[in-house]
Design a protein around this nucleic acid. Structure first.
Length: 467
RNA sequence: UCCCCGGUAGCUCAACCGGCAGAGCGGGUGGCUGUUAACCACUAGGUUGGCGGUUCGAGUCCGUCCCGGGGAGCCA
């Protein structure tokens, strides 16, 4: 089959292509024509935000008939000469000499118009929405970010570990979980099986979709040194917000011989690196999002990429909040969790940039976080960004066997399910740390997209698993 | 799950105190030789989310269910 040039490559070196005959393939964004004369097709092939202007002129029999069939949404091939465009809005265009129509799009039925659509509407046509400017741009940024995540870690000696999607421990403390079973809920168990209902099930015990790869990543960090996982994660919480999904992607690095400070520095370097990549490699998309989605975007990204993040302790945060004159709905008091309004106040009003918060009260955090010398706090860190809130959560892990067992006892975690996790502290235990970053929240942050459902191709939320 | 707001043409939205269902865009037809959300003219298009109630009369008021959005909780 004929293979054309990517439109993005054409724009990258316009001088080189001027006067040459090229072949392009893509989808018609708009068409402006006159029956008697010159016509204009804006062609987009997904390689760039900007479309290529195609000039059509009357020629030969059957040509206008073909042009009539080419409507918004059609897939076509165009062969023609790259020329200087006399019009405004583009510097080059292609004067068509041959056009082939691959697939039509009935204009009366095609759901995408030239004008702007609401995100709510586009979600209902998730099979067509990547053809829009915003969703297409978000998809390219997401792809580039995913690659950059691998680049960052691979360049620094980390190994990529595939932690399991299906797990059998259900009390990692990260909320509601999805059950994995081959049993049919519509088919009641016969009484013999009912004594041990899991006997007939695939894994012969309760199984679930992972809520985090961290505990398994720790296993490999204590063998390979520095590792990271990057994959889908699942939460069955009935969360209906612009920041939550039932299925989302998470990056979780885990490093042996790293304390909390090392962990924090890695996380900050990581975020700055990713923002730098987006600014450097997706300028067209950033410009677009800045113009149509979030006017403050450029300022926000440059701020985060260059300036130092603010880093404070939980105790200092509580101090700042109690002294502020702001009226909060929820109380501020040492020992209570910071609410969304408090986080927003700190990152948006007090500092106006990303904020790292360290050393949270022990009672607020999970069993695996390392207990500090004061015995009241744990070596935890949250990184908050303006607009999105918490984007990274991490900690130094408890490597001391006796303290870990005490923590599990206090939090009511059954040791049987975690014998392997405990054994890591019996055999060559070592200080280690890690953190988790939600990919979709990062996409939200770097694009300014308000709802997380536009930061992932096929959002899964309560009541929604279409497409 | 809780609180608030909304659901009217394919899309985005109007419709005053309860009184004949509207516009822009999109679609169709015709016109236009350099357009850029092209332009000009004409035209088709509706079970006002579902069910029930109040009323002479309901898009509008009441009840209920469904769906969407914003916020909260849970978290990444």
């Amino acid at each position: 089959m004929e293979k054309g040039i990517r439109i993005a490559d054409l724009f990258r070196d316009e001088q080189k292509w001027l006067g040459k005959t090229v072949l392009v393939q893509g989808w018609v964004k708009t068409k402006r024509d006159s029956k008697a004369g010159v016509g204009f097709i804006e062609l987009n092939d997904g390689s760039s935000l900007k479309g290529l202007q195609i000039i059509t002129e009357q020629q030969g029999r059957g040509y206008s008939e073909l042009l009539g069939k080419i409507t918004t949404g059609s897939a076509i091939l165009v062969e023609g000469i790259v020329s200087v465009s006399p019009g405004k809005g583009q510097s080059i265009e292609v004067r068509a000499e041959r056009i082939h129509l691959y697939g039509r799009a009935d204009p009366a039925a095609y759901p995408l118009q030239k004008k702007r659509h609401s995100f709510e509407y586009l979600r209902q046509i998730a099979h067509l929405r990547p053809r829009t400017n915003t969703i297409g741009a978000a998809a390219r940024v997401r792809s580039r970010l995913s690659f950059a995540i691998h680049q960052f870690f691979q360049d620094r000696g980390f190994h990529y570990v595939h932690t399991p999607i299906i797990t059998s421990s259900d009390c990692e403390g990260a909320g509601e979980i999805f059950r994995v079973t081959t049993l049919d809920p519509a088919q009641p168990l016969i009484s013999a099986e009912a004594e041990d209902p899991y006997k007939a099930d695939f894994f012969a015990k309760p199984a679930f979709l992972t809520v985090s790869g961290q505990l398994q990543a720790e296993i490999y960090a204590l063998a390979l040194g520095k590792v990271y996982t990057f994959g889908p994660t699942f939460r069955a919480e009935n969360s209906n917000t612009s920041r939550h999904l039932a299925e989302f992607w998470m990056v979780e690095p885990e490093m042996a011989f790293y304390d909390l400070e090392d962990d924090l520095n890695t996380a900050l370097e990581f975020i700055k690196y990713l923002i730098g990549v987006v600014l450097g490699e997706c300028p067209e998309e950033v410009e677009f999002f800045g113009r149509y989605i979030e006017p403050e975007l450029m300022k926000r990204l440059e701020n985060a990429a260059q300036s130092s993040f603010e880093v404070i302790t939980y105790t200092e945060a509580v101090d700042i909040l109690t002294r502020s004159k702001e009226r909060f709905v929820f109380p501020v008091e040492w020992g209570l969790d910071l609410q969304a309004e408090h986080e927003r106040y700190l990152t948006e009003k007090v500092f106006g940039r990303p904020v790292g918060i360290l050393n949270f009260p022990r009672a607020l955090k999970p069993f695996y976080m390392r207990v500090n010398d004061d015995e009241k706090t744990v070596a935890a860190m949250d990184i908050l960004v303006p607009g999105t809130g918490e984007i990274i959560g991490g900690s130094q892990r408890e490597e001391r066997l006796d303290v870990l067992l005490e923590q599990m006892r206090l939090k009511g975690i059954p040791t049987d399910d975690y014998h392997w996790y405990i054994e890591l502290r019996e055999f060559g235990s070592a200080p280690h740390s890690g953190f988790g970053l939600g990919l979709e929240r990062l996409v939200q942050f770097v694009t300014g997209i308000p709802n997380i459902r536009e930061a992932i191709p096929f959002p899964r939320t309560p009541g929604h698993a279409e497409f």
